[in-house]
Design a protein around this nucleic acid. Sequence first.
RNA 1: UCUCCCUUAGCUCAGUCGGUUAGAGCACCUGACUGUUAAUCAGGGUGUCCUUAGUUCAAGUCUAAGAGGGAGAGCCA
Length: 506
Amino acid sequence: MIQIKDFKDYEGKQIETQGWVMNKRSSKGIEFLILRDGSGFVQAIVTETEAGEQAYTAAKQCNQETSVRIKGTVVKDEKQIGGYELHISQLEIIGHSEDYPISNKAHGIEFLADNRHLWLRSKRQWAIMKIRNQIIFAIHNFFQKEGFVQMDAPIFTGNAAEGTTTLFSTDFYEQPAYLSQSGQLYGEAMAMAMGKIYTFGPTFRAEKSKTRRHLSEFWMIEPEMAFFDLEMNMNLIEAFLKFVTASVLENCKPEFEILERDTTIFENMANTNFTRLTYDDAVKILKGEKEVNGRKTTETLQQDLSEVLQEIEKINQEISEKEKAISESTISKGQSNFIRNKIDQLKNTLKDLEVKAKNIPEWLKSAADFTYGEDFGGSDETVLTRMFDVPVMVYNWPHEVKAFYMKRDKNSPLLAKGVDVLAPEGYGEIVGGGERETDLNLLIEKINEHKLPMSVFEWYLDLRKYGSVPHSGFGLGLERMVAWVCKLPHIRETIPFPRMYGRLMP
RNA sequence: UCUCCCUUAGCUCAGUCGGUUAGAGCACCUGACUGUUAAUCAGGGUGUCCUUAGUUCAAGUCUAAGAGGGAGAGCCA
């Protein structure tokens, strides 16, 4: 059995392969089957004259998603996806497929989510899952080559670790237990044993968030390094993100093509330093008080807005021209159908643009009204990252908006040594991390301040009693990374079976 | 939890000022065409108009409540 991805090695040869029929087109005496086998996609043809009656009749019986076993010849054809075509000589149906729900036309998101188990077979989803796989592989490669030890943190926890988010509660032998929202505290303990560690596991948050960047169950990578300060941490984050994006860039060209993802941003990133801003500077830029490359946020976003408005104007004109064309009697039925489809598409893009046009002034207002000392909101991140085309690291945060374990800055008592990495192109926070507090008294003070139960943190405080060292770490949200790399509009497509508010099936 | 929007055929949607028999495309079936790229062309039928209550001579259309979905806020990776 030869896989589609390997057809390039079998040009002109007879081969045997198997897969599913994604789509079928036909003309007199010839059937065009688009096949997929998980490794790739290829067009196969069956002609009545060359393949013979058996194969031709079998091909005619194929519907969308019929599984088949095929013998045929690999022929070079530049016009085709992948550059090759399969000329079938024998075709055997393995499993029939009747009334496959997902057609080649547009579907709504709810319908696709309900059919997620089948949606995964679509080309676009295939590309996303392959990129997700490559990202995971690259993450392990990076940390393993840097001498990190992978560890698994517990999923059942006895306490709401950081006290901030709502957790899923469950029953652990008649004791209340929570599903882990982070493996970090356990990671710190392990780092004191192994030096450098990373966790790679599921994380659960019970927030009723219905936005394009939230899941209830997601996968997080949390490295933790002994003898690391904030700056070393930031250097590591930068090297790490560059390694992962370079690896995807190198290994996922066909996938990016399917997604129509422009990858120049990753090419540029490889040779450019990430922008590093203190919280203070980030706030000034956000509020339009400080320029970036001679431009203020207000100017840049105003220009974005007028571009969106022009685009809306253009599409409205195109729609009315097309509607006029349909109303003329000389037009054929086929042509008018085609134009109607186009109009539907245009109306959808119009809706998106209108939302954008509505949002931009609101974002600007919210940025201008930003109060120093608060955490950034989603729109603030979008406005800020809009000014740069590499990831932006914001560090030295007001300690009050950060978690209790974040190290306070001795020189500026109001600040903590945290760092957030904001992805460009409007994707916002993908990494959160920082240097950890080592001062036992400050930690105890903070735990009391956050009204957290001291008893459950006693083991954690032990880490500061016995040979405490400066240490740092960070957390990367895998799905947010995938969403950004693939430039997806929503995080729900980045994981095979998303669990989010209102979605537990399939 | 809050704000705005949506719910009509298997799917994507249109449905004007409340008016008589509910509209298209796709999918599906039949036929035509030997190179199609979401192929095209001709023909074929499909409805709990989300639910409940109300206003009205008359409700897919108006009002209220509820359910489900989407976008945003908060929270966060």
